[in-house]
Design a binder for these strands. Structure first.
Length: 624
RNA sequence: GGGGGUGUAGCUCAGUCGGUUAGAGCGCUGGCCUGUCACGCCAGAGGUCGCGGGUUCGAGCCCCGUCACUCCCGCCA
């Protein structure tokens, strides 16, 4: 196989008697003025060429940077280089020379030198490109995904992936420093009946049975606590067959999954706050990060003041309830709805009093397009209140509104009137819109908070059934006694979300580790003992042999990187993301499989009527 | 599953009130050019105006349908 004697290749150039590495002596971001005079060999992609006819500049690029290489017409390799297309991979060998002062390029770290090319080898030719790597032209996303390997060569995306790697490394180190230990949990596992749709994997050995990909390692990490491992973490892949969003990758994503034993909610917060704060300080590029302990906002408060369970604290506007100011008033529409159970929420618009009528009309039209009945408003001026609503309200009522919202002369206040769940949510949408309109969003800052005290249950308005509002494995506040004595809709859970700039980074809980409480909790949601045992038997049984109280959380890694990279779309921080239809246009997945594969899996297809597809839909690019 | 937006050269886009031969920049091909670094200059090739139907004397433009992508709602314990 291999010779025991080093082979000396005849055409390998020597530097002071030593043979050079076959591909490179330096990378493309490495050479400095201090290297001038020495020989160098670089390999990389032809980033740009500037062809002066008798003088040719080649910017050679690799992962580390760009180096200008130069050759003139007297060189035997001139023709070869002139013919090399951008993105061809070449190896150049030559002499490093310092540039004259007027030709130094201060934009490049290597800009004080250039390599005078003596030899060239074309390592790989490039066809004409479907998209350019050099420059910053924008390309449609389907093309970027189809030619992801080209897209990933581009500076911004390339840097994002590097950032992601560093963030993950830092998260890992910070977790280890906090005393957590990393473990791997299964990828082929059981379907979980609650929550998102699972990805299923048919079993060959067990006809008619399926594995599921984990939506999260939830049950495994709890079993690890039962097994006595005390502090677990994992950069865990999670799989959910749900629709994508700009901030939600369809199919798969990663969580910093962790779980701890013998802890209260505060212990969990104290463990993870330094990790997140540290990572955001480290990679935030100087943007201010909320110091820990992060603010804790009760769910009910969050819905009232921010109209969301993931409040963006960069937005200074605070919603308030002004139902009483309108109850029984002459503003009939609101008064009548209030009598029917509606509430009124007020969203302040500081300084908007001098906006033209069109400003308010535009927002009203927008509200209607969002499905609301409209968007009422009052303009506060010195000593009076203006607008169509104000004239139907007496001074006391207007004073109440001013008091509740803190409105001063020159401000406006908008009103949303509807049933509570609709009104509070829409008030949150209005809060965001007004903030944008008035340009009030605080910039260059990461604002963290915890949303705590989530309700344990909620009422499904369609079925009128009580359902778990979040994780059925959360411990109810007040334990068994609360379940037995309280109105289920009043019970809070030890369930919490961590939020940064209005982005939900993670959801977590102190878990319910007591079988008796679990049976009761499920009973309230309409599931009998048998159902619980059938679906959660593995974990439930484990709790019957000595389970520590435990809890944890699982911040989304992709979203953390997205915030740090300041990218509006999660696909900008994932190497090979699927598109919104959960297709991988590069690898061509999902794909049909051969009939024999289906046969051995005991599967028969029952397909819906085929849709007509475009001429090149789903086809992979031509390999070359 | 539902709603909005977009779709014109390989790419980014312009295209007037519906009117003759659909334009620009980048890229590509050829020519010129020895200090550029988004090199420059000249010339050229390149179009199923997403697709199908309709209105009209006439459609890139108006109407209906459809497909693709994207954003949002639903969904995401």
């Amino acid at each position: 196989m291999c010779s025991y004697r080093p082979i000396s290749l005849p055409n390998e150039p020597k530097e002071e008697g030593f043979s050079m590495h076959q591909y490179r002596t330096h990378n493309c971001g490495q050479l400095r003025l201090s290297d001038a005079g020495s020989a160098a060999r670089l390999s990389g992609w032809v980033h740009r060429k500037r062809d002066h006819g008798n003088l040719l500049f080649v910017d050679l690029r690799d992962h580390y940077g760009v180096t200008q290489c130069v050759v003139d017409v007297s060189s035997p390799v001139f023709q070869t280089l002139e013919a090399a297309r951008p993105e061809s991979v070449i190896r150049v060998t030559g002499k490093v020379v310092g540039r004259s002062p007027e030709t130094v390029n201060s934009k490049l770290p290597t800009g004080e030198i250039e390599v005078q090319i003596q030899e060239v080898e074309i390592l790989s030719t490039a066809d004409v490109l479907p998209m350019q790597v050099a420059g910053d032209q924008e390309y449609p996303e389907d093309m970027r995904l189809r030619y992801r390997y080209l897209d990933l060569r581009r500076e911004k995306v390339h840097a994002n992936m590097l950032l992601r790697s560093k963030v993950i490394q830092s998260l890992r180190q910070r977790m280890i420093d906090q005393g957590f230990v990393e473990y791997q949990t299964p990828i082929l596992t059981a379907s979980s009946p609650e929550g998102a749709r699972d990805y299923l994997v048919p079993s060959r050995l067990h006809p008619g049975k399926f594995y599921a990909l984990p939506q999260a390692p939830q049950q495994f990490k709890q079993l690890l606590m039962v097994a006595g491992f005390d502090r677990y973490f994992q950069i865990a892949p999670c799989f959910r067959d749900e629709a994508g969003r700009a901030d939600r990758s369809p199919g798969e994503f990663y969580q910093l999954d962790f779980e701890m034993s013998f802890v209260t909610q505060d212990d969990v917060f104290n463990a993870i706050e330094p990790v997140l704060h540290g990572v955001f300080e480290e990679f935030g590029g100087g943007r201010a990060v909320t110091p820990y302990p992060f603010p804790r906002i009760a769910y009910d408060d969050a819905m009232l003041k921010y109209g969301s369970d993931k409040p963006d604290l960069r937005n200074p506007l605070i919603i308030s309830d002004v139902t009483e100011a309108f109850r029984g008033s002459n503003f009939g529409i609101f008064a009548k709805n209030i009598d029917k159970g509606a509430i009124v929420r007020a969203i302040p618009a500081p300084g908007a009093g001098d906006r033209p009528r069109s400003f308010f009309d535009k927002l009203n039209d927008w509200a209607r397009s969002e499905g609301a009945a409209g968007l009422g408003y009052i303009i506060f001026a010195e000593g009076e209140a203006k607008g169509p609503i104000a004239k139907n309200l007496d001074a006391d009522r207007i004073a109440m509104i001013a008091q509740a919202t803190g409105a001063k002369p020159g401000d406006a206040v908008f009103f949303v009137c509807d049933r509570k769940p609709v009104a509070e949510k829409f008030a949150g949408t209005v809060r965001t819109r007004i903030c944008n309109e008035l340009d009030l969003l605080e910039k260059d800052v990461f604002k963290f908070c915890w949303t705590v005290d989530f309700p344990m249950y909620e009422l499904n308005e369609e079925t009128n059934q009580i359902e778990f509002s979040h994780n059925p494995f959360s411990m109810p506040q007040g334990g068994l006694e609360a379940l037995e004595t309280m109105n289920p809709l009043e019970i809070k859970a030890f369930q919490y979300d961590i939020v940064c700039n209005g982005v939900e980074l993670s959801s977590g809980a102190i878990r319910n580790h007591r079988p008796d409480i679990m049976y009761k909790a499920f009973e309230i949601a309409g599931y009998d003992k048998e159902h619980v045992e059938e679906h959660f038997g593995g974990m439930l049984n484990a709790f019957k042999f000595g389970a520590p109280p435990h809890g944890g959380s699982a911040p989304g890694v992709d979203r953390i990187v997205m915030l740090l990279a300041d990218e509006p779309n999660i696909r900008e921080v994932i190497l090979f993301p699927m598109n919104q239809q959960a297709q991988d246009l590069l690898m061509g997945s999902p794909a049909e499989v051969a009939p024999e594969r289906l046969r051995e899996l005991h599967l028969k297809l029952h397909l819906p009527q085929a849709k007509k597809t475009g001429p090149d839909a789903g086809s992979a690019p031509q390999g070359s």
